[in-house]
Design a protein around this nucleic acid. Structure first.
Lengths: 155, 155
DNA sequence: CGGTATCCTAATCGATACTG
DNA sequence: CAGTATCGATTAGGATACCG
């Protein structure tokens, strides 16, 4: 579990958010977390959900239970075949989505979210809730920043 | 709030995770969320935290309270000046980090996390906790997938 | 010290064409 | 139907040099 040290940003002062591994990690020596260590689980999760389609695919499958390739493609309007396939393969490889090929003609391939994949919804919901609660503040801050920047550029 | 419809993946069946806006959004008509709408708050958040340094900078500032530019640079070993500046500017613009220039010679610039920025820690912790709880399963799934792929390639 | 400016590479993403 | 393969555009990211 030592490799989990990274992402240590989330320990520290702060009021023991869930106090789950805070007991273990709190004030862990900063010396042994590599700022950008390979294989850091948190980084991998961030990279995965930071991409363009993962969250949408996961959400659609969470909602609909099972979808065929073409149905997904229609639902996620604008996704290219390449990106959809790539996203689905990555999710399948990570055990978040199950792919079932039905040996028929024409071929039928169904995708469904796994138990593991479903557990990812919770933290994603937390993120969505944050954005719903605070995005207006972000937008306001952004507008203020730009206003000031423009003013500075002018006068 | 209509523009928040996207990310609708997180409504749907599923056992009312926090049941916060589930009452409002649950089973919202799927017709009016654009799969990749511009300005979707959730997408913006995902894009921001999906980048390489945001979460690390935020974490360091959450932990240390205040840091000077160079101190951050040392802490986040491997970050280029360009990326550090870029990340800090983006965070400042979004109101997540405050930048204070002390008019001295030599210049001293301090960065600290804002109240708003601090609120982002909670969902990030949720994400980190997920990765700590489930990354072994992901790794296992991945190994299984690769093993099977290699076997298929062989025989 | 705390940045910009410039140039460059590598990765991401998408459009198109083709296939079992 | 459910993909691959290929190519080109865009973007993220980094190395280096210079500036107030």
């Amino acid at each position: 579990m030592e490799s989990f040290q990274r992402f240590g940003m989330l320990t520290g002062p702060g009021k023991a958010d869930e106090a789950e591994e805070n007991t273990v990690m709190a004030r862990a020596p900063r010396t042994d977390w590599d700022p950008y260590a390979d294989g850091c689980p948190s980084r991998e999760v961030l990279d995965r959900i930071g991409d363009k389609w993962t969250v949408l695919v996961l959400g659609e499958l969470a909602e609909s239970g099972t979808r065929r390739y073409t149905a997904l493609r229609r639902k996620l309007d604008g996704v290219s075949e390449k990106m959809l396939t790539q996203t689905l393969r990555a999710l399948e490889r990570d055990g978040l989505v199950r792919r079932t090929v039905h040996p028929e003609v024409p071929p039928r391939v169904e995708y469904e979210i796994t138990e593991l994949g479903a557990t990812l919804r919770e933290p994603l919901v937390a993120l969505k809730n944050w954005s719903m609660r605070h995005m207006d503040e972000v937008l306001e801050a952004r507008a203020a920043y730009d206003r000031e920047r423009d003013t500075a550029a002018q006068g």
